[in-house]
Structures are given as structure tokens and as C-alpha cells.
């Protein structure tokens, strides 16, 4: 059972990394600017989950602080970008 648990943690880790890959593809090809902002926001969220799962993988609680900081910074940066898109004068 314990080896199954290690396997499950590794599976979740691989899933999050592949999800980040998908987000990066959308970030690179996204036709409009708001697509890229959405991809960036999902990338932040996946990064936070990656930190949490890494914390479980290594059995260390230091990663909790990392995840909290990533969540805070991701929220602030996405809000700033979306606000800029809404108010700015640049139209593609």
C-alpha cells in the first residue's frame, strides 16, 4: 500500500507537469491577449499545486509557505494584467 501511495504521488506530480505543459502551449499560441492571461493564471495555479505535491513527496512542510506565496503572487499579477486589458487602449 505504501508503494502504491508513492506511485500515486508520482502520478499526480506527472499530471500537474503535463498540465503545465498544456498551459504553456496555450500561452504561446493563444490568439488573443486574454487567452494568454487565462493560460498564465492556470499556470500559476498549477505551480501552486506542484509545490504542494512536492511537499508531500519530500515530506517537508517548507513547501506550504511556497504554495501560499505562489497563490498570493498569482492572484495579484493576474488581477493587474486583467485590469490592464480592460482599461488599456491597445486593441489587437
Amino acid at each position: 500500500m505504501i508503494s502504491l501511495l508513492v506511485l500515486a504521488i508520482n502520478y499526480a506530480l506527472i499530471c500537474v507537469v503535463i498540465a503545465m505543459l498544456f498551459c504553456t502551449v496555450r500561452l504561446l499560441i493563444g490568439p488573443a491577449a486574454h487567452d494568454r492571461v487565462l493560460a498564465l493564471d492556470t499556470l500559476w495555479m498549477c505551480g501552486m499545486l506542484l509545490a504542494l505535491i512536492l511537499g508531500m513527496r519530500f515530506g517537508s512542510q517548507i513547501y506550504f509557505e511556497t504554495a501560499l506565496l505562489i497563490a498570493l503572487l498569482g492572484f495579484v499579477s493576474t488581477i493587474a494584467l486583467a485590469k490592464f486589458l480592460m482599461r488599456g487602449e491597445i486593441i489587437e
Partner: peptide, 9 residues
Amino acid sequence: ILIGALGLM
């Protein structure tokens, strides 16, 4: 998580 990112892509 994987399905969500797949939908985004």
C-alpha cells in the same frame, strides 16, 4: 487537473 488543462488547450 490534467482534464482542466486539456480543456484550456
